[in-house]
């Protein structure tokens, strides 16, 4: 319950921060660069004199979008197909599994690169591409988990007792597969924002004018030794978010 509240609170904060910032996050003030915390700039300014807090705030919304895109696309697709395949069996199972195995072989890098080449690399495009790329592996992951639970004696017993399919799914199957699945998703969701920063590093190029936490880590990497706070703040913001997500699902 409190976990759900924490998640709602997180979403509310990200939304509010994305809609209003104390300064224009893109406004450059070269004379005030690398300034320390002050009343006007609580977290100081970056190498171009832009307000770090404002950039963090607007960046959170973009980062949140990426995380939600990756997690929901990947989770919805993967959990659905994986459970279906395991339950249906027969040729339908074979088709779903083969399709995911084909899907999984397309390198994430190629998916992201193609998306970047065609649509431009924005955090959201990257999130959708990464989410789509996650469906294949998650389907296989869910499928193998479900299969394993289905082989357990208590399922055989439930079948013998004549538990209806839906009750079977909700009462016996999901409670046994969801925890591992959610752990996996919770553990992977933040990775998307970071994957985006790494894609930028590889040379796809993040847009320095559309800050998101991952992109900020990339942009400020030049100051990792000289003004490390520029990296610590977005890293910390990302860390807290990931931590909440992990706690949500990790029992």
């Amino acid at each position: 319950m409190t976990r759900g509240l924490a998640l709602l609170l997180l979403i509310a904060i990200l939304l509010a921060a994305g809609l209003w910032q104390p300064h224009d996050p893109d406004a450059v003030d070269i004379l005030a660069r690398h300034s320390g915390p002050s009343l006007s700039h609580p977290l100081g300014t970056d190498h171009l004199g832009r307000d770090l807090l404002s950039r963090l705030m607007i960046g959170g919304l973009r980062t949140g979008t990426v995380i939600v895109a990756v997690a929901s696309i990947g989770f919805a697709g993967g959990a659905l197909f994986g459970t279906l395949a395991a339950l249906l069996g027969g040729w339908r199972e074979t088709v779903i599994l083969r399709a995911s195995q084909v899907f999984i072989m397309v390198p994430t890098l190629i998916v992201a690169l193609t998306a970047a080449a065609v649509f431009g690399l924005s955090p959201l495009n990257a999130g959708i591409a990464l989410g789509l790329a996650a469906i294949g592996p998650l389907t296989l992951f869910t499928h193998s988990l479900t299969k394993r639970v289905l082989g357990q004696p208590f399922i055989t017993a439930a079948v013998a007792l004549g538990v209806p399919p839906l009750g079977m799914l909700t009462r016996h199957l999901l409670p046994n597969t969801l925890p591992a699945l959610l752990t996996y998703i919770g553990n992977q969701s933040g990775a998307a924002a970071i994957a985006y920063a790494s894609l930028a590093f590889i040379g796809l190029g993040a847009d320095p004018s559309l800050p998101d936490w991952g992109g900020m880590l990339f942009e400020y990497r030049m100051f990792i030794f000289d003004n490390p706070m520029l990296l610590i703040w977005p890293g910390l913001a990302l860390g807290v978010t990931v931590f909440i997500l992990n706690r949500m699902f990790d029992r």
Binding site: D26, A27, V28, I30, L48, R50, G120, G205, A206, D207, P208, S209, L210
Partner: peptide, 18 residues
């Protein structure tokens, strides 16, 4: 991004790509 900020002052919106 500096160029983006400078053009913004003149009312020109800039998308940027590397």
């Amino acid at each position: 991004p500096v160029i983006k900020a400078e053009l913004a002052r003149a009312g020109i919106a800039l998308d940027t790509r590397i």
